[in-house]
Amino acid sequence: MSKLKLSDRQLYALIEAVKLGEVIKPSQSAKRKAFSRYKIEGWENSKLTGIFYSIQRRLGLIDEVIEELVGVSPLILDPWLRATLRVAVEVAVFRDPNERTIQHLKGLAKFLSGKTHPYVGYYYYELLPRIINYVPKLDSEEKRLKWEYLFPEWFIAKMRGLLGEEAEELLKALNETLPVSLRVNRLKASVKDVENYLRRKNLRFKRSERVETVIRVLDSFNPGRLMEKGFALPQEEASAVASLILSPKPGETVVDLAAAPGGKTAHMAELMKNEGKIYAFDVDSERIKRMKQILRW
């Protein structure tokens, strides 16, 4: 597997996204704002988005590393220093950066000095070798499992107490990335129509045993064509179940809070046969734009 390559500009974008993520919610709004500032687009966007969400996912563990090295909680550090250290730990400890990327990590000292104070940049530069050479002390089974599966030690200890050796299988399962699931819009297509489309694309799939209109696609694919026609939307079983439990009827009025990007809103509209009213709200204007597009389909 090739080593991770990151440029100065990409590191700057990640740091600003992590810093903004502390004050702008949801975190994807912070990411979009920072990435736009540094013109992160296309393949760069996909690559850095994966790293950004990885930092968010293991933030507790990253902060434990920082506290061990610094001696104080990261929460009392300068915000720019905190964000830079979080990115540096993600890149140097949890990934395999190439030598050029290591040099760019060292160059962040100058970036920090410009953002806050030269002494902060000096402090980061002096600390970085300890981050690069950091090796965790995995002196218990709970710590080993915490590092591998990113669950807190108390949870791991509880699961081991309940399940014994099978606990690791549970932790592994909870870390699996599920295949894309599609929910068929029966106002415009049948489940068989969508399944036939997937067969023509030579894609493997499996129909949900819990929600009859959900199909789990086992191969990578772009659902854009199905979405544009309004035949199906990406939606997990658990999300689709919520609308089925509510079971809105034609002519009723529904209020959907935190509605964007619109999967449940669209599902409820289908169940209501587009007869009635749905008031859909969200705090994220960009996600609302996406929801409007989805609902038009």
Rank of each mutant, 00 (worst) to 15 (best):
R287H: 02
A189E: 07
A259Q: 02
S220P: 12
G262C: 12
P261G: 06
I62K: 09
R199E: 05
E16K: 07
F111Y: 12
E44S: 14
K39N: 11
T84E: 13
K292N: 11
A88Y: 07
D219I: 01
A13L: 06
M159G: 02
R287K: 09
K277E: 02
K143D: 12
Y53F: 15
E209R: 04
L145W: 14
T101P: 05
G164H: 05
K39S: 14
S73G: 15
K229L: 12
L226C: 03
Q235N: 04
N202R: 12
S239M: 08
I245W: 04
E90L: 06
Q293I: 03
I215S: 01
L187H: 10
A13H: 04
K192C: 01
K25Y: 13
I245Y: 13
I55Q: 08
E90S: 13
W297A: 08
I102E: 08
A109S: 13
R290L: 11
I288F: 06
D63S: 12
K33W: 11
T177I: 08
L48E: 06
L75P: 08
L69P: 06
E41R: 15
K188H: 11
A280E: 08
M268G: 10
P26F: 14
S190D: 13
A157I: 00
G230S: 00
W297Y: 02
F35T: 06
L69C: 14
V241E: 15
K292D: 13
I288H: 02
K115S: 04
K192F: 11
I76Q: 15
R160Q: 11
K264M: 09
S220E: 13
K110W: 05
F94M: 15
L162M: 14
V70K: 15
E67L: 05
R216Y: 05
V72C: 15
R58G: 09
E237G: 00
V89Y: 05
Q28F: 15
R186I: 00
S36R: 07
L112H: 00
V120D: 00
E126Q: 07
N45E: 15
Q235T: 07
L198E: 01
V214R: 06
E126L: 05
D282L: 12
P179C: 01
P129W: 03
E195I: 04
L198R: 03
P26T: 04
T253I: 10
L187V: 03
A109N: 10
A189S: 06
K188R: 06
Q28N: 15
E141H: 14
E165V: 13
K115Q: 02
L59M: 14
L48K: 04
I62A: 04
N196I: 07
S2T: 10
S27N: 09
Y197Q: 01
V241D: 08
A260W: 09
V135H: 14
A258W: 11
E22H: 11
K206Y: 01
L138I: 02
L108N: 05
K110M: 12
Q103L: 10
E169T: 05
P129H: 05
Y197G: 01
E99V: 00
A109V: 06
D63Y: 11
R9H: 06
K143R: 12
K146L: 04
A189F: 02
M1C: 01
